[in-house]
């Protein structure tokens, strides 16, 4: 009944929050199953130490206590933008070097990549961010990895992406609960 009284803008954002939460949950589920096949196909152990792998946004190292939920969503958006580029590289490495014949596996990675793109777009809309400014900057340039380093980085990308998805669901719930009638959350100020 309460939602029926909301203005169209608020209703749109309410729906957008719900859609984004569902998408983040879907990403988490898909990445979890992708991780299972990833470690098998790369011959890795899920418990392998990945401390030596740099360049992947870590969900655990963000100073959550000092940030509002909206700022944390902004940090998540930055992370997902980085994950788009990273997943693209992981996919290309698998296609070109590591599992060139495994097209089903490539399709699974590509599917997650598309979902991460969609999640970033939805977060941009929720946070009122300018997408074009980011697209002009382009993805970070990473390269020069050995094949084994590619395997490790791919594992870390998937593991961290799963953590970020969980964190995003939690942050979205918080923002939606604490500001039910609000317009866009303001989290873009954390962008570099």
């Amino acid at each position: 009944m309460a939602s029926a009284e909301q203005n169209p803008v608020t209703l749109h954002h309410h729906k957008l929050y719900n859609r984004t939460i569902l998408l983040a949950r879907k990403i988490h589920g898909d990445v979890a199953s992708l991780l299972e096949s990833y470690v098998e196909k790369q011959g890795l152990d899920r418990t392998i130490c990945l401390d030596s792998v740099d360049g992947v946004p870590s969900a655990a190292t963000q100073p959550e206590g000092e940030m509002t939920a909206a700022e944390r969503l902004g940090a998540g958006l930055q992370a997902y933008r980085a994950f788009q580029a990273l997943l693209g590289e992981v996919l290309e490495e698998q296609r070109t070097h590591l599992t060139p014949l495994d097209t089903d596996f490539h399709a699974s990675i590509h599917s997650v990549l598309l979902q991460v793109q969609a999640l970033a777009r939805q977060l941009e809309e929720l946070l009122g961010c300018d997408r074009l400014a980011w697209e002009a900057a382009g993805p970070p340039a990473l390269g020069g990895l050995s094949l084994f380093q590619m395997k490790l980085r791919g594992l870390k990308v998937l593991q961290e992406l799963a953590h970020w998805a969980v964190r995003t669901v939690r942050d979205l719930h918080q923002v939606a609960t604490h500001s039910p009638g609000s317009g866009p959350a303001r989290g873009c100020q954390v962008q570099a």
Partner: peptide, 20 residues
């Protein structure tokens, strides 16, 4: 596996130093 066998060099504490 198609992606190659992992030959890894570890330090005493188990950290990965390099892989081939």
């Amino acid at each position: 596996q198609q992606s190659g066998d992992n030959l890894v060099c570890h330090s005493r504490d188990g950290s990965i130093l390099a892989g081939s």
